Simulated scan of single mutants.
Amino acid sequence: MEPEAVRTASRVPHGGTTDSTVLDFSANTNPERPDGVDDVYADALDASTRYPDDDYAEFRAAAADYVDCDPESVVPTAGGLEALRLAFEVTLAAGDSALVPEPSFGEYDHEIHLQGADPVHVAHDEILDADPGEHEVAVVCTPNNPTGELADSGRLRDFAARCRDAGTVLVVDEAFLDFTDAPSLAGESGVIVARSLTKMFGLPGIRAGFAVATGDLGERLAVARRSWSLSTPAAAVGAHCMRDTEFVSRTRERVATERERLRESLSERFAVSPSDAPFLLLDVGDRDVDSVVETARQRGVAIRDATTFPTLDSHVRVAVKRPDENDELLRALADV
């Protein structure tokens, strides 16, 4: 990390609210979680009087099964964001550049800046056509946050091959990929995959995720990883959740059905971007975004002001939740 870059950096705005009196549609997390989490957490808490086993064999085996890769290539991290920081720490130096989609997750720019490197922005729907050759790193978010579209698997693999030929490391943020049936790029040569367990399993406070890379990249990540990077409860709960394939399938079906229902209804009043993710991006047109957000909140629903994302000046983002909660969202936005 570049000390001078830290001095000029600032925090990145995110969704999520601590106000328990409102329904939170500003953060894209599952409102449900797998059965048995409480018991797994309690057992792991009892074992937390000792340091975690820094090998994390059980967690890495579950993660490898979850994304279909070798357990040796899994690097446990305290959430997907730590996986991203680790990826940029081992690939970027001061003066380097990284190809970044726009609009997309604001932490990419932040983390790249902290290394003293420069993000070079490309439209999110043009990133796979970009030339990675002049950059040390290229970043793809699939499905992209906040727009929601899934990258075509064939085109993404072609882009990975072009990055590999150019000597450019491809960092793929798959935080929302498990809401789709698309294959992970985990284990692909020259690629670092970042995964989060926050979104699918509805446990943002647990802070569990992982990175995947092979060869020299994997070795660099493993060496740079902080010791005891996952708490004992996070590792146990994470492994338990990733093994619950029925929960994942059930969540995918619910999100797909409810997302389409929301899209059809909200399209009567807003321009709604196509989405493969558990959220929808709405263009509110000539309405005042602050007013839309405040009105929804007064009606008991928190939604995300998406104007904090570059290039978006008339947008909000809403999560997809359970049917009764989604009904509340529709009521809150009925006549704004």
Rank of each mutant, 00 (worst) to 15 (best):
179 F>R: 02
217 L>P: 09
179 F>Q: 01
221 L>V: 01
309 F>N: 04
98 A>W: 05
119 P>R: 02
63 A>M: 09
117 A>F: 11
214 T>R: 04
295 T>D: 15
209 G>L: 06
306 A>I: 06
306 A>C: 11
310 P>V: 05
182 A>E: 03
143 P>C: 03
162 R>D: 08
174 E>V: 00
148 G>V: 02
292 V>N: 10
20 S>H: 15
95 G>H: 10
237 V>R: 11
94 A>S: 12
6 V>K: 11
174 E>S: 05
255 V>C: 01
60 R>C: 12
5 A>N: 01
234 A>F: 07
129 D>Q: 14
85 R>N: 00
30 N>Y: 00
153 S>Y: 02
10 S>G: 14
45 L>K: 14
263 R>N: 11
79 G>Q: 05
121 H>T: 01
254 R>K: 10
84 L>E: 08
20 S>P: 12
34 P>Q: 10
280 L>E: 13
124 H>S: 14
271 A>C: 02
218 G>P: 03
18 T>G: 15
19 D>V: 15
296 A>M: 11
300 G>P: 11
257 T>Y: 02
276 D>N: 10
230 L>R: 05
291 S>M: 07
14 H>D: 14
244 D>I: 12
245 T>Y: 06
23 L>D: 14
313 D>L: 06
333 L>S: 11
25 F>L: 12
232 T>R: 10
13 P>T: 14
176 F>K: 03
73 S>I: 04
292 V>S: 10
209 G>T: 02
235 A>H: 10
188 E>S: 00
133 G>M: 13
16 G>K: 15
323 P>S: 07
83 A>T: 00
185 L>R: 01
330 L>Q: 09
167 G>R: 04
123 A>F: 07
249 S>R: 14
230 L>P: 01
302 A>G: 12
47 A>W: 01
125 D>K: 03
141 C>P: 04
156 L>T: 01
243 R>W: 04
78 A>Q: 08
174 E>N: 06
280 L>T: 09
244 D>L: 08
98 A>F: 02
331 R>D: 15
201 F>Q: 02
159 F>P: 05
46 D>Y: 12
170 L>H: 04
232 T>L: 07
107 E>Q: 03
34 P>I: 04
308 T>A: 13
177 L>C: 04
199 K>A: 07
173 D>C: 00
24 D>E: 07
281 L>V: 02
203 L>I: 06
144 N>L: 03
91 T>C: 11
236 A>H: 09
251 T>A: 10
80 G>Y: 08
163 C>N: 07
63 A>G: 08
58 E>K: 04
200 M>A: 00
316 V>G: 05
117 A>D: 06
259 R>K: 05
155 R>Q: 12
127 I>R: 00
110 H>P: 02
146 P>V: 06
285 G>K: 08
82 E>L: 09
131 D>M: 03
310 P>S: 06
287 R>F: 09
328 E>C: 11
310 P>R: 05
89 E>W: 01
262 L>F: 13
37 V>L: 05
161 A>M: 07
228 W>V: 11
88 F>G: 03
25 F>Y: 15
309 F>M: 07
24 D>W: 06
313 D>M: 05
244 D>R: 07
190 G>L: 05
184 S>W: 04
265 S>R: 15
103 P>E: 06
36 G>Q: 09
130 A>D: 06
209 G>Q: 08
68 D>A: 13
31 P>G: 10
247 F>N: 03
187 G>H: 03
65 D>H: 11
93 A>N: 12
